[in-house]
Design a protein around this nucleic acid. Structure first.
Lengths: 116, 116
DNA sequence: TATAAAAAGACTAAACTGGTCTTATAGGTG
DNA sequence: CACCTATAAGACCAGTTTAGTCTTTTTATA
């Protein structure tokens, strides 16, 4: 199934919710979870990860919460998806040269490479 | 990981092997498996499935084996991939209307739909 | 009939998915 | 300082999927 996982779908929903907030406003995880219909602790994990790579900013303690780490126009859907799902690439053998031992003999490799 | 599974990769290798044979020639599963570096019983499953949907033709008994079910030019990579991995669609909510209960309220849906 | 080959189906270990739960830590407030 | 509010971190878990293997059956040929 070449589909997003739940995690990917949830990540997008969360980011979009944050993007629609007035700039500078922080949102509680409980609020985001409720609005997006995502299990709160699961969404928290996702956003915590995003905080590490700068897509969102998090604030602990009273008055804390989450907001985007930079302006929405500088965050791509692809970036969000790849952050949770890993690189969008049709085949492992394209990730880097040397990762596939069939690289030199397999007739499929050059085709993938050319179309990607 | 938005990647092909092993099964998808193996399927492609198998089909390409068959496509490179002289037309009308049947290949033993053992031969295909060896040439493509795929575990034989696993590849057999894949090709047996392809036989059911007509992508390949199979012949049992002595002198049997596999060949393409139609000319290679009429078989698309997408068809092969979708046959093993399921439909290539980024999000479950696009599969059919009514499959997602957030359909009417979710701001993400129309975006997906429009770009797909 | 013997043999060669695919077909079918049961079975398995390991990894991944989609979470939950508990504890720790950081920041405000009185 | 004490207390409360929030995120952070990490252990844990059931269920599903992946990537196979193994055995038995069926079919075709010589």
């Amino acid at each position: 199934m070449m589909e997003l996982t739940r995690k990917g779908e949830y990540a997008i929903r969360g980011i979009i919710h944050l993007a629609q907030l007035p700039p500078g406003k922080v949102a509680l995880i409980s609020e985001i979870a409720e609005a997006t219909g995502v299990p709160q602790t699961f969404l928290a994990k996702i956003l915590q990860n995003f905080a590490k790579i700068g897509i969102v900013q998090s604030f602990r303690g009273a008055g804390g919460g989450f907001m985007l780490g930079r302006s929405a126009s500088k965050i791509t859907l692809r970036e969000v998806v790849e952050a949770v799902e890993g690189p969008i690439v049709p085949n492992r053998c394209l990730i880097g040269s040397g990762t596939c031992e069939r690289d030199s003999t397999c007739g499929v490799h050059p085709v993938w490479r050319c179309h990607w």
